[in-house]
């Protein structure tokens, strides 16, 4: 199972990397991407609070950030 997962993820990463070279924008085309609300963690505080709720209520955590330990939440 673990080998399978590793293989699939390595393959995905390679495909992504190969595709990356033709993607993207020139520096002067970043007007929209540079907006605060386009930052991937623009909702930083909300995401931290949500992570804590779902960490303590569901069996899965992490993904966006480290799954880590952190609390003995009930």
């Amino acid at each position: 199972m673990r080998h399978k997962v590793l293989k699939i993820s390595s393959l995905l990463l390679l495909v992504q990397l190969a595709g990356c070279a033709s993607l993207g924008v020139q520096p002067w085309e970043r007007d929209l991407l540079a907006k605060d609300e386009m930052a991937l963690d623009a909702e930083g505080v909300d995401l931290a609070l949500d992570d804590h709720i779902y960490f303590s209520k569901e069996a899965t955590s992490g993904g966006r950030a480290f799954a880590g330990g952190g609390c003995g939440c009930n």
């Binding site: 992504q16 990356c20 993607l23 924008v25 007007d31 991407l33 992490g62 799954a67 880590g68």
Partner: peptide, 12 residues
């Protein structure tokens, strides 16, 4: 925890 990440700008 180990995390590998890839961030990619797709277009404008």
């Amino acid at each position: 925890d180990l995390m590998l990440g890839l961030t990619q700008v797709i277009n404008r």
